[in-house]
Design a binder for these strands. Structure first.
Length: 270
DNA sequence: ATACCGACCTGTCAGC
DNA sequence: TGCTGACAGGTCGGTA
């Protein structure tokens, strides 16, 4: 995407996936060059740059000298929610149901946002978007330990709290806790430093392995090229209730914790 | 401040 | 075949 320019934007009639008004999103994206696409937690971030339009707002202030061709920057933030997909398509590609936004690019390609359940979110920012929390792949062990200090909440809930650690979702929380040998229900504050240090390493290992395999395609997930991931084949506990633990063959259990299914091995995880 | 719980949506699948 | 209910990669706001 980097280097391509958004020429025009079509937005569907459903408003649910939008955090910013559709007209604002369209106006912010159109004519902008995509400088960089990166990720912050679960958010996809498009750094945009464009010329300041010649006529801004309803009225130009009389007598004010306009800056010559200054650059305007903005950020487009995309959160895929549960079933969101951002895919690069040829214009001729079939228009699938639940397509909510199409951005036509100067290269002739299209960037499409598809989301059946509409839990995804699109927004635009002038810049300085703050996703909150720390990156699990960058945080030091010391800072990681601090995140959970004194928290009485179950460790699973703390892992899912995006204000603490950003980017860990239900699958990766369960898989990391299995790898670290910690029960999801265990109170965060009651976990030893050594065990939390192990969790720190486990989160990193699980995420790196998942990323290397292209993510977990359970029903909807595909990457920007429409390719499915394969990490779902490596899930040790997630979605495996009743199946034998890969380590000790004990049946995997499922409990509901703060509204989310949590899977664990009752023997390996204490 | 903190912690559950329903709400937000559509789709799929198991069970009857 | 078709109905119903449970469940699904997430987050938010209300209530206790």
């Amino acid at each position: 995407m980097a280097g391509d320019t958004i020429e025009s934007v079509w937005i569907g009639s459903r408003k649910q996936p939008l955090k910013s008004p559709p007209a604002v999103i369209a106006a912010t994206l159109e004519g902008k060059r995509i400088v960089r696409v990166h990720r912050a937690g679960k958010h996809i971030v498009f750094d945009l740059e464009g010329e300041v339009p010649p006529k801004q707002g309803a009225r130009a202030v009389r007598g004010q000298t306009r800056q010559a061709a200054s650059l305007q920057t903005a950020q487009w933030i995309v959160h895929l929610g549960m079933t969101g997909r951002m895919v690069v398509s040829e214009p001729a590609a079939e228009l699938v149901k639940h397509t909510h936004l199409i951005a036509k690019l100067a290269s002739g390609r299209e960037l499409r946002f598809i989301d059946p359940r509409m839990f995804g979110k699109l927004s635009v920012h002038a810049g300085g978007f703050d996703p909150g929390g720390v990156e699990p792949l960058e945080v030091s062990e010391e800072r990681f330990l601090e995140l959970f200090r004194g928290r009485k909440t179950p460790i699973k809930s703390a892992l899912l709290n995006q204000k603490l650690l950003r980017g860990v979702g239900n699958i990766y929380a369960d898989e990391s806790l299995f790898q670290a040998g910690i029960r999801p229900q265990k109170r965060a504050a009651a976990i030893t430093r050594e065990r939390l240090a192990k969790l720190h390493r486990a989160v990193g290992e699980v995420l790196r392995e998942a990323i290397a395999l292209g993510g977990s395609s359970i029903s909807d997930y595909v990457d920007a090229d429409g390719e499915e991931g394969f990490f779902q084949l490596q899930h040790r506990v997630y979605g495996r209730e009743g199946e034998p633990c890969p380590v000790c063959r004990t049946a995997i259990r499922r409990v509901v914790l703060s509204g989310r299914s949590s899977h664990y091995c009752p023997k390996c995880q204490k």
